[in-house]
Amino acid sequence: MRLLYLAFGLILWTTSHASALDVEEHQYFPGSGARVLKILSTTDLALFAPYVRAFQDIRPDIAVDYTVVSSSELHRAIRDGAQFDLAISSAMDLQLKLANDGFALPYWSDAVEKLPDWARWRTLIFAITAESAVVVVNTDLFEGLDLPETRQDLLALLRDNPDRFAGAVGTYDVRVSGLGYLFATQDDRATDAFWRLNEVMGRLDPQLYCCSGQMIDDVDEGRLALAYNVLDSYAVGRLAADKGGRMQILEMQDFTNVMLRTVLIPATAQDIDAAGAMIDMLTTLGIRDQPGDWPLPSLSLSGPLEKSGFGPIRLGPALMVYLDPLNRRNFLTEWEDAMEQR
C-alpha cells in the first residue's frame, strides 16, 4: 500500500516540481485530509521518516511531502522562492543567512520557548538536534596503528604512513557540501592544525564527498581507512547496523565541532499552522531527556555538547562571515591549494 502511495507521490512530485531542484530523495506521506506539509530538508529520508510518522500520529489529517536536497541546494531553492512550508538543514550558517536576509517567517509557541537560548535565533530559527563532527576509521585498515586522539596525533599518523593512507582518506568537498564548509570554517577558527591537516591530506590524494552517508559507507566497506568531519549521528546509526565491527568512531580530544540541525519556516510557506505543529514536535523531541528510539540525537547537553567543551556552534550573525563571497572565495582558494596539490 505504502509503495503505491509512494509511486503516486513520486509521479505527483515530478509533475509539480520545478526541474531546477536537484532532489536526492523524495517521499510523499499521505494524510487523511487535503492539507500537505511540504518539507525541504537535508536530512536523509531514512533518518527522518520516523519523525514524519510520529507527526502523522498526532496530525493524521496532514500529508507530508518530504524532499531531501543538499544544504547549498536548500539554501539556493529557498532564496529563489521555492514554495515549502518547512526547511530543515544541518548547515547552520546557510539557515542563518536565510533568516537574516528575510527568507524566514517568525514563529513562536510554548514548545519553542522551552528551547535553551542558544538553540534558537530570534523567532526564526530553532534547533532540533545537536550533532558533532567526528572521525570515523576502519579498524581493519588501521591494523597495527594507534588510534589518534587529537588532530596532532592524526596529523602525525597521516604524515608517517603515506602509503597506507594514500587514496584512503575522505572528507567533505567543502565546495559542494554546506555542512562540510561549516565544519571546515569552524575548524579554521578553532585550530591552526586544520590547515596542516589539510595539507597532509592533500598529499594523500583525498577522496572528497558531498555527504556523510557515503563517506561512512566507504569506511564501512573498506574503501576508506579514515573519514574526517563525519556526522556522528549518521555514524552511530551505521555502527548499530554494522555486524563486522570494522568501523569505529573517534572523538578528537582537542575539540569537537557541534552542529545544530535547525528548522525554519520559509517566507513562501503556505501552511504555517502545519509547519508550526511540526516545529513544536521536533523541538519538544529536541529537549527530551531520554534518548528514546529516535534516529537523531537530542539537544541534550549530556551528549556531544558536554564532550566538546566549546558548546555548539553559535547561532548568530558571525556565521555569515564565511558566507561572504570574498571570504568564501579566499577560503576555498586556500582549501583547494591545500587539498589538490598532489
Binding site: 535565533w121 553559535r314 548568530g316 550573525p317 558571525a318 562571515v321 579566499n330
Partner: peptide, 15 residues
C-alpha cells in the same frame, strides 16, 4: 576579509 569577530561582537549584544 570580514573578520569573524566583526560579526561575533554584533551577535553578542543582541539577536
Amino acid at each position: 576579509e570580514l573578520p569573524y569577530a566583526a560579526f561575533a561582537m554584533l551577535g553578542a549584544i543582541s539577536q
